[in-house]
Design a binder for these strands. Structure first.
Length: 549
RNA sequence: GGUGCCUUGGUCAAGUGGUCAAGACGUUAGCCUCUCACGCUGAAAUCAGGGGUUCGACUCCCCUAGGCACUACCA
């Protein structure tokens, strides 16, 4: 067989050679140890937590080593592509703080290793495939889907490995004339790699997360170029990551099983293999089966990044959480360096986990509380405003008209040594403080059981008579104490606990009555401060309203 | 079925032959306290199972079990 002739028959229009592209995309001049990473999503319109998890790893690895991180769009599958998915992807990633040095951006494409969209790289792939054909390492295959299906069935029955390999690779050794004839007949074909792999032989590859990985060589004659003239993932990955000079391929562990194919392809092209970084899939406990399982986009709304945006999680909180599961010692580092920029953390692939990580919402919430506790009232307000603008127009209008008041509300117990940690995400925050606004006020809790209805009215009546917004915190509380004692309740809770039979209840119960009247809830931040912010009119009307109950 | 990866408390995990097996979340008992939150002091809870190697194994080897992934002209 004259492979040169075959190559010309198959790719008459390809005139470039691999060397041309080598020259066009020279090796990067980067400092020693610098990593070049990439995020390579398909534009399916769905970006999830796992994508962000990987993207953050890519970004950190590149930027802590002085390297580069780029975004490549893997759109070789025309069936899966969703219109407008790329801008959404870019927006979402930048919302969560991920930016790229190269590749697709809002303002078009940047970087010297483009195009960064695979559908625009057809000529490059075809040049490489032609090169393989010329060397006898790839060949056209005319098998129809039906034929392949039959082979698969037969293999299943005989309990053999499925796929096109060995004797099943029927078109592996077609003659030139046969190929020419079929093409002239208009038969469609794909290009398969001619595997010389031996499953008895094992190869070794480097995985920065898992260490040395060793697997049997690939025997399958995998498709490298599809009927439509675009490559499969396998070939596109090899060509792109070589030409874009990627040093570290960070991807999900579902790719590990294809490493034999990739290694074979890199070797066949005579290219150096990148270092792989196979990270774990995010899992959750299934409510029905109580078993660990992969987070699914159909069943689990919390997999979607949109879910967190909508609930109003601070992007920084999501990032902090992801960092804690990405590098096992991040949490301790953060504890020791509460104010440090996360970029100062010494991120490394070897500290990434190789076992499945369970997504833990309560941990996310805890991390979020810590993040928000460090924010200023102004920052909280700003975020709430942008969240409401997108998701809750009514709240946005309310907040826009009450900025001064909101700043005071968000400032309660903020700053200082022991800030409150009860703010988690926007929706929760709103529910937490909406009683400050009559439009959203509601009684969320019941009256304390320890206080009779009669006493309750007495407490509220006296409270209203005595209430003076000019009182300072201690003067105000002295009045509450006076009512407490008058009505036969213990002024000190400890006294009540020691001799419960001597009292009806204690000052806590009495103030809970007032708190519930004013806020609709049995717990809240310091009541005196709350009332200072509300103003006398609101306090008065709330207490009056409560007395009617 | 085959191939590969993974396996320390409920969860995330440190650990690399000798530790009373870190820490965090969660749970929980208290303290502080007008409620809540914060903070503080405690508690319960882990090396999947079985064989080796070794004076000694969470750490090394083998087997078993379980979980996960892949097994497309999808990525």
């Amino acid at each position: 067989m004259d492979y040169d002739k075959l190559a010309e028959l198959l790719f008459p229009n390809i005139t470039k050679t691999p060397e041309d592209y080598e020259a066009l995309y020279p090796e990067r001049s980067l400092p020693e140890g610098a990593m070049v990473t990439r995020m390579a999503p398909s534009p399916t319109g769905f970006i999830h937590l796992g994508n962000l998890y990987g993207a953050l790893a890519d970004e950190r690895l590149a930027h802590t080593t002085g390297g580069a991180c780029f975004l490549r769009i893997e759109d070789t599958d025309d069936k899966r592509e969703v219109e407008g998915a790329v801008p959404v992807l870019l927006d979402t990633l930048s919302y969560f703080g991920i930016t790229f040095d190269e590749g697709k951006t809002k303002d078009g494409e940047i970087g010297a290793y483009g195009p960064y969209t695979q559908s625009q790289r057809a000529e490059i792939y075809q040049t490489m495939v032609k090169h393989l054909v010329r060397q006898g390492k790839a060949y056209p295959c005319f098998m129809t889907e039906e034929e392949i299906e039959e082979i698969r069935k037969a293999q299943a029955e005989a309990k053999l490995d499925p796929g096109i390999y060995g004797a099943y690779a029927k078109h592996r050794d077609l003659s030139y004339e046969e190929i020419e004839k079929r093409i002239q007949n208009g038969e469609e074909y794909v290009i398969r790699f001619r595997s010389e792999g031996d499953p008895a032989r094992y190869f070794h590859a480097v995985d920065a997360i898992r260490g040395d990985i060793s697997m049997p060589e690939n025997v399958q004659d995998v498709v490298i170029l599809k009927k439509i003239g675009l490559p499969t993932y396998h070939f596109a990955h090899v060509v792109d990551d070589h030409l874009m000079r990627t040093t570290h391929v960070v991807r999900g562990e579902e790719w590990m099983a294809s490493v034999p194919i990739h290694v074979q392809l890199f070797d066949a092209m005579g290219w150096e293999r990148p270092i792989f970084c196979h990270n774990t899939v995010l899992m959750k406990i299934d409510e029905e089966t109580n078993q660990k399982r992969k987070l699914s986009k159909r069943k689990d709304p919390e997999l979607s990044l949109e879910y967190y945006k909508k609930l109003g999680y601070f992007p920084e909180a999501v990032r902090e959480y992801l960092m804690t599961i990405l590098n096992s010692d991040y949490e301790e580092w953060r504890l020791a360096n509460p104010e440090a920029d996360y970029r100062d953390f010494d991120f490394s692939a070897s500290k990434m986990s190789s076992s499945g990580t369970l997504f833990d919402l309560s941990k996310l919430n805890d991390v979020s509380k810590d993040v928000l506790a460090k924010k200023s009232a102004a920052q909280i307000l700003e975020f709430m405003l942008s969240w409401a603008e997108e998701y809750h127009r009514d709240i946005f209008d309310l907040f826009s008209a009450n900025k001064e008041k909101l700043l005071k509300i968000f400032d309660i117990d903020r700053g200082g040594e022991k800030p409150r940690k009860d703010l988690i995400f926007a929706e929760q925050i709103f529910g937490f403080m909406k009683y400050f606004f009559d439009e959203y006020f509601e009684y969320q809790d019941e009256w304390p059981a320890e206080v009779s209805a009669q006493d309750r009215k007495e407490i509220l009546t006296r409270y209203l008579q005595g209430y003076d917004p000019a009182d300072d915190n201690s003067a105000w509380f002295e009045k509450v104490r006076a009512i407490t004692a008058d009505l036969g309740y213990a002024v000190k809770p400890k006294d009540y606990k020691k001799n419960p039979e001597q009292y009806k209840g204690h000052v806590g119960h009495v103030s809970t009555v007032i708190r519930r009247a004013v806020t609709g809830k049995t717990n809240s931040p310091d009541l005196w401060t709350v009332q200072q912010i509300m103003g006398i009119d609101m306090v008065r009307s709330r207490v009056e309203k409560a007395m009617e109950q």
